[in-house]
């Protein structure tokens, strides 16, 4: 936020801000063409000269080597990086949205999901090497449709993109890594929900059309799922206002 009041153009998390154009210039950054942003199959990308160019930042190297899916990992709460071989500009999307929101509209979807969609839309072709596909338009449309049913309190999921089909998976993993919940979008107007448990459990995977709002919401309200989505305990899920992080409820006067 402070960057917006600075007089001189400054590098904002690695991205030079054209401050003379005002806050709206931030939006143009989001719409900037994505050419020249693919590094190709570099393994040690952090040492690649392009990674030091203004406006580009790459964090981490190859996380998924032989897998069919490559991971796109939110690096900070408000910043993304491609952990495979692709490269996207590290733009602080959340602050951009906040600036925009303050002027024109209030956010209608969770900020985390806003960021997720915008980021996925920006992934360029061949982001994970020659011949790899970015998230497909169909899969993105399905992610967007379902994003409205996900709790606004959800944390940012880990994102996987199938480099062949452009399918997208959103994965929420518990801190101890023993349990995770995934929503899988293959762009066929359906979403698959599944939970992986190392500590047992008999979660029944499901597949629903993305417009089956109530049925999807029912499954996302499952306590196990909610706990993973929001990274909270069961007690916090059941009673959010009792959470130690929340503002809390004012004590009631005693009645009759």
């Amino acid at each position: 936020m402070n960057a917006l009041t600075a007089r001189e153009p400054i590098a904002w998390r690695g991205f030079p801000l054209p401050m003379s154009k005002g806050p709206n210039a931030l939006l143009s950054l989001l719409e900037a063409p994505t050419q020249d942003r693919t590094l190709g199959p570099q393994r040690q990308v952090e040492s690649h000269p392009t990674a030091r160019r203004p406006g580009y930042r790459l964090i981490g190297t190859r996380l998924v080597g032989a897998g069919r899916r490559a991971k796109l990992r939110p690096h900070y709460a408000d910043q993304f990086s491609v952990s495979d071989t692709g490269l996207v500009p590290a733009v602080n999307v959340s602050e951009t949205l906040i600036q925009n929101s303050a002027k024109t509209l209030s956010s209608t979807v969770p900020l985390a999901v806003d960021r997720l969609i915008i980021f996925l839309e920006r992934v360029p072709p061949e982001w994970a090497g020659p011949g790899t596909a970015p998230p497909s338009v169909e899969a993105l449309a399905d992610v967007l449709a379902v994003s409205y049913f996900i709790s606004p309190q959800s944390t940012m999921p880990e994102i996987e993109v199938d480099p062949d089909s452009g399918g997208v998976s959103l994965i929420w993993t518990r801190k101890d890594k023993r349990r995770s919940f995934a929503l899988i979008f293959d762009g066929d107007h359906r979403v698959v929900g599944t939970m992986a448990c190392l500590d047992g459990g008999n979660y029944k995977p499901w597949a629903l059309a993305v417009d089956q709002e109530v049925q999807i919401a029912m499954r996302l309200e499952d306590l196990d799922v909610m706990a993973l989505l929001t990274a909270q305990s069961f007690a916090q899920v059941i009673n959010p206002s009792a959470s130690s992080d929340s503002p809390g409820v004012i004590a009631l006067p005693t009645g009759k």
């Binding site: 209030s106 956010s107 606004p152 309190q153 206002s241 929340s246 503002p247 409820v249 004012i250």
Partner: peptide, 16 residues
């Protein structure tokens, strides 16, 4: 001015 407003804004972000 209530503290609980922040919780509502998190769960119900469209404010009018």
């Amino acid at each position: 001015q209530s503290a609980v407003r922040k919780l509502w804004e998190t769960e119900l972000p469209a404010k009018q």
